[in-house]
Design a protein around this nucleic acid. Structure first.
Lengths: 253, 253
DNA sequence: GTTGACATACTACCATGGTAGTGTGTAGAA
DNA sequence: TTCTACACACTACCATGGTAGTATGTCAAC
């Protein structure tokens, strides 16, 4: 019924929402969610983005009630999203006290790095020499776009392509769950990477490493691919460690 | 663990629960939860155990409503536990249709094995030569108890000690999050292992492998330790694969 | 016997009210 | 000034009611 598109606050088709909120606009930082799709995942996704992009800073409080009001939904789906974020280590829930954006703990970041390295090195070793033609073509295209992004200094786009590149390795290796794990632990580093300072030549280095990994995978040199992945990920960790001294305010313990 | 204290529902100190449920006992399969502790984690833990021990079989339905009644709580904490179990791949939630114990998918089990191997091999390689005296002593004691359990044919106890042994490796290496990941993916295998047939000499093999790993770790031979861990975990996978042909009824797709 | 419409009985999902537990500010005593 | 008692404002947590969506059984039409 009423397969409405886009304009949804204009026609209250079947909206028995009391919504008794005529109060002054409380400077909402988050837009209301689309309420024709499952709500809880939307909230999770939004908060995850807000946290990894540092729109929400470490130690910032997240109240079920406040978020529900800002998003125009009830507290239940908000709570479910918070629980999931807590499971992934992005927020800390203190019972009966409050929920807070987790501080960036260097020890956590380093262990995330350990996990990611162990997994992703194994992934490329398994993948080496077994990539389909489509995969190789797609990856090559991705690398070309990465080169373009680097040339244009589009850091945001590069990070996106970076993620897609790494994901495609796991997926082509037939290891989707592994990517899920990598993705979760990667969140810890993403928060820091997002503000990683524009160090000259950094993106070029990462791109060159991507290319090197790809070539080893294509040539079927498993050990080589693994070694290059290790070097690549350690490069990423280095930037995190540099930032931990440059911006100690964001780190905890 | 499992040191059940038992007597806790006897003193309803502050139980203002309306609990208007004088209905006939509906053959409850689950005992009511202890309501002076956080409820949701208790439910999660209980269901996890029921699923991994195959008390609840694949494809069995789990209704929020039914479980809530059986456990004597409301539907909310049940729902939260189900969401967490779904995140970990133990149940499938079909929106507006129902929640069901996930079938054992051989592909999932094999990928879980991949993840576990990648992580745990890295763990022992890192740990090799760096174990504290207390750790070495504790591990030795554990292995002795394993030997005793094998001699007495106590499979249940052996599995417990097995888990403790593996966990202690991660923790001593300073990698608690890694253990968490291992633990989650291990759930997929545990379901199968739990009914693993009493193959003569199997436990002895596993014990010998544990000892071999420990000795390599103690001697600081990282590569050796990693290789032995690989062999050990592949042995475990073998039993899973054998069972997938012996009990195809439990497997899906 | 087959097919399709429709009532019914479920389900997960969201909204909302109530409660115990925790931090904080404030008033009074030392 | 320093401490303690206590009211208050807040939190996460759980209970419960209501709704849209899905499956299934029933019955009419073919």
């Amino acid at each position: 019924m009423a397969t409405k598109i886009s304009g949804e606050p204009s026609s209250p088709t079947n909206a028995p929402k009391p919504r008794a909120e005529g109060q002054r606009g409380p400077a909402r930082a988050l837009e209301p969610v689309n309420n024709r799709m499952p709500i809880s995942p939307q909230i999770y996704e939004r908060l995850r983005r807000a946290i990894t992009t540092l729109t929400m800073l470490p130690s910032e409080a997240l109240s079920e009630q406040d978020l529900a009001k800002q998003l125009g939904v009830s507290r239940t789906p908000v709570r479910e999203a918070l629980i999931r974020l807590a499971d992934e280590g992005l927020i800390d829930i203190l019972p009966q006290r409050g929920s807070f954006v987790a501080p960036i703990r260097l020890s956590d970041v380093e262990e995330a790095q350990f996990i990611r390295e162990a997994l992703e090195v194994s992934v490329v070793q398994k993948l080496a020499g077994h990539g389909s033609q489509e995969f190789l073509a797609t990856a090559r295209a991705n690398l070309a776009r990465q080169a373009k992004a680097v040339a244009e200094g589009d850091r945001e786009l590069f990070l996106e392509l970076d993620e897609a590149f790494h994901r495609s390795l796991s997926e082509e290796a037939g290891l989707p769950k592994s990517w899920r794990v990598i993705q979760v632990v990667k969140l810890q580093m993403d928060r820091v990477r997002y503000l990683s300072l524009p160090e000259p030549g950094h993106l070029e280095t990462l791109l060159a490493q991507h290319v090197a990994i790809f070539e080893a995978v294509e040539a079927g040199e498993a050990k080589q691919a693994g070694a290059r992945m290790t070097a690549h990920l350690r490069e990423v960790l280095r930037t995190v460690q540099r930032l931990s001294v440059a911006r100690p305010d964001l780190f905890g313990r």
